[in-house]
Design a protein around this nucleic acid. Sequence first.
DNA 1: ACGAAGTTTCAGTAACTACTGAAAGTAGAT
DNA 2: ATCTACTTTCAGTAGTTACTGAAACTTCGT
Lengths: 173, 173
Amino acid sequence: MSDECVTLEGVREEFVAQWGVIGAQWGINRTMAQIHALLLTAAEAMSTDEVMEYLEISRGNAHTNLKDLVGWGLIRIITKKGERKEFFEAEKNVWEMFRRITRERKRREIDPALETLRKCRDATKSMKDRDAKVFYKQISELEDFVSFGSKMSDRVGSLQHGKAIKLAMKLLG
Amino acid sequence: MSDECVTLEGVREEFVAQWGVIGAQWGINRTMAQIHALLLTAAEAMSTDEVMEYLEISRGNAHTNLKDLVGWGLIRIITKKGERKEFFEAEKNVWEMFRRITRERKRREIDPALETLRKCRDATKSMKDRDAKVFYKQISELEDFVSFGSKMSDRVGSLQHGKAIKLAMKLLG
DNA sequence: ACGAAGTTTCAGTAACTACTGAAAGTAGAT
DNA sequence: ATCTACTTTCAGTAGTTACTGAAACTTCGT
């Protein structure tokens, strides 16, 4: 970050921009990551128009990404009495945020991958030639590993933050 | 997978294709994921030309992605005596594969993210108004969480496979 | 020092993903 | 039933990333 970012808004802008870059590397659309960063560090819930204005993006873009974030469970819709429009507020608890991201990625990406692995394993289970044996062995090991990891992530995700930390401390200690 | 994939090559083709799709969702270029899947399930090391032919891709594309995979430590170059060309072989041990992916992602993506978080935290540490306090608190929590996770991943990555499994079993048990 | 076999680079292009802006849709207020 | 404030959709376009194919480069054998 350049040194002249001495105002809150300067630092925040830098954070939002960088979070977008980081998100993009993880296969998340940049705007979505930026909106998330913005709401995560907002003191109050924001409207679509405020998000549009801050990030200088179109209504359609703001709308789509806000709704996607709601779909991920990372932000929620707030309605204020007397106000007709919707406001958006981020889940601010970091542990909860982590759990939701993990749960969604598992559902959307790990589970289908496991499905593929299982099918490939079953289809080659009883093949006899060398290449098939190599293939079957490799796929089996991969499947065992991924499904083990998947179970672990369920287990960790079901812990309270405090318990998870304690457990992790034992691991690190 | 469609039911008519009854030959090894049919199943393998399906696996390679699917692995490409999964990789893409994780921010990895599709061809790279496909080459990895191909080499991972190969009985023998393969040459650039064999990879090109199998995936029906250009030499430039094959070359770039093979070299990127070498950069990730997921495949290695093999030279056969009497042969002038290079062959490529995947790291087949799944635990080792996992460790290398984790280590690289940490280096390339987590460490820079932490750097950003630290800068943002430091820059707002002594600001007094409400918005700055909210920002500082949120960034701090995020930084603590990410750096904790990063340490955990180092710790787990330094374990032997057997030990990791034992530890995980305790967790699951 | 030349030719053959293989590797690397890169300009141009194709394919894909994200974004805009405007139009259509919805729902509370009068 | 009409107006107004807001939300949703989407066709077209901009921007980005990935891929090709060919030329340049390297290395080894003769």
